[in-house]
Design a protein around this nucleic acid. Sequence first.
DNA 1: TGTAATTGCACCATCGATTGTGCAAGAGAG
DNA 2: CTCTCTTGCACAATCGATGGTGCAATTACA
Lengths: 354, 354
Amino acid sequence: MSENEQKKATIYDLSIQSGASASTVSAVLNGTWRKRRISEETARRIISLAEELRYTANQQARALRSSRSGLAGLLLPVYDTRFFSSMAQTFEAQARQRGLLPVVVSGRRDPEEERRVAESLVAYSIDSLFIAGATDPDGVHKVCARAGIPHVNIDLPGKLASSVISENRQGARALTAAIIRHAQQTGPLSPDDVYMFGGRDDHASRERIIGFHAAKAEIFGTATGNDTESTGYSPSMTALAFERFYDRHGRLPRCFFINSSINFEGLLRFMGKHDGEAFGDIVVGCFDYDPFGSFLPFPVYMIRPNISEMLEKGFELLESEETGPHIILVEPQLVAPRTALEGPLDALKDSNCD
Amino acid sequence: MSENEQKKATIYDLSIQSGASASTVSAVLNGTWRKRRISEETARRIISLAEELRYTANQQARALRSSRSGLAGLLLPVYDTRFFSSMAQTFEAQARQRGLLPVVVSGRRDPEEERRVAESLVAYSIDSLFIAGATDPDGVHKVCARAGIPHVNIDLPGKLASSVISENRQGARALTAAIIRHAQQTGPLSPDDVYMFGGRDDHASRERIIGFHAAKAEIFGTATGNDTESTGYSPSMTALAFERFYDRHGRLPRCFFINSSINFEGLLRFMGKHDGEAFGDIVVGCFDYDPFGSFLPFPVYMIRPNISEMLEKGFELLESEETGPHIILVEPQLVAPRTALEGPLDALKDSNCD
DNA sequence: TGTAATTGCACCATCGATTGTGCAAGAGAG
DNA sequence: CTCTCTTGCACAATCGATGGTGCAATTACA
């Protein structure tokens, strides 16, 4: 592995070879040279020398001196869902566009782990942190605040820092209405046929439950009790909930709302153990979008959060130096069954088929 | 945001408050203090003071001095598929286990972008780089080699550095055999009914095509020509390929092999535009695993690469200081239709349903 | 022509941690 | 009681980039 493994060039190497001082070289290469009244000619000379030697600045040194690292952090619960991986993808693009190197880490929905991970980012003096879907956003906030690191919450709000989140309530209302209308096409539906699975006691889940009930009340004109089952964000717990329901009723609800694609995986596990008879005619809504989920053998309505806009607003919040904790709502999109939306993948130039 | 925003404590702060010198503090906190013959008592004193002041080392300073940053890089083409997001998730866990901070970036299957991204990681003096699914692994190799950064290829091999990849040929053979057998259960099948879509001219695709043809030859005893269509790793190109096939034959092939979940998304787009008549009885194999893909309204066999083992071997390669470029093969897993495997999500402790 | 203003750059301290080296105090040997 | 060894730590250079300050040379102006 050690072919022409020359030590990387530094401003001192450039300084010697160009005859200019190190500080001049530094100024030229970081763009502050006009302010320092360096002549165009010197600048050009140094720049072309830098290209020749393939100089790139040592970011550690730069960060140490200027206490700005050029790193932007994103804290996710997990990568492994289309929602979060899509967020990582979009974040990367937006961060790099701003000249920052994105560092994505996962807190595994464990408040302690979230704080530990945040600490480790702080140790690298990240310039800003996006906290997405944290179990304890305010714990992470404290870590950032102590280190003076600007941060925003994405998708799950915190009390102590600004947040950009989906319009969960209206989204859930629209989603619920859509699945009820669809189910009604194949026969009369009672409020007891409409159920909700997944989520826990977090802001998003609470809002979605409110929206869910609002839609039911609008359509059926009456409130029902016991129609939601909280299972955490765990596939196996959700599968258990479906099993329990099946044990009691001999089938799944005609029509139900699943709180996230992670919970949806619980439905898959249930399906893997049963054949179609348990769910021949179900209509499902899921508050998350997954292209494969959209084509399952029954109608699946999905909600796609507008990730790109949430992140964009997040960057704007950070750049605007706003004071108090604001909450910004971003409208999500209702996706009809059997819909393959375009996504970040389509931005790739991979149309060349050799 | 500026509540108790004390500047982070440094070894100098600890030095003053503990009465020891900065170098002693440093040695105590980085674990080299026994080698430096610092007394247990001094060490304990400093450690407890550090905890009290919530000291964490400035990684930039450490990296600058010791030229080891504690960063481990992973270069992916994209995040937004279950394969790569699962890889990111697993990589994160394994890197953190080794005390490294994972930095995941995407090269968008663009050789230039791959090199640029690698350069930007090099500027942060990452300690090692995992190159996964790069279009031009050897270009990235050169970037690393020049900077003396240890690196391995994952999933797609390079010629110049060691690689850990899936056993594509045998995996493809098994997958092809599985879909053919399945399709034969519902009536006689001719070699012309068995097709392959997706991929491009990379090592993985070539191996898979060989395996695909090997399985066909074994079962049908005869070779057929024109039975593969390369579409790049692009959903829209793949959708076009399906459309073209449909235009010519009035239906999709009875039985086909899709080269990756990205290409599978092309099938989804096709499905979104057509109703079941075009593919009522198809049997599909996909070289990638996606839990939702496994439950589509037709049999889908999938291959799950053993990501965890590939990364593990990758770390071992880096740690072993091996010389010449090695290639390590890792057996993937054939997954029957309607199977919801456990994944990284299940490692989360989120069973608490408040 | 003398003075003020501007141009163009070099010098040097600094960020926080690491590490080779040096040295005083105490322990042990003779 | 002297001499050597060990123990326990402090000193200071260093990593590479940044930015405040100072100063010589040139230009502008009266």
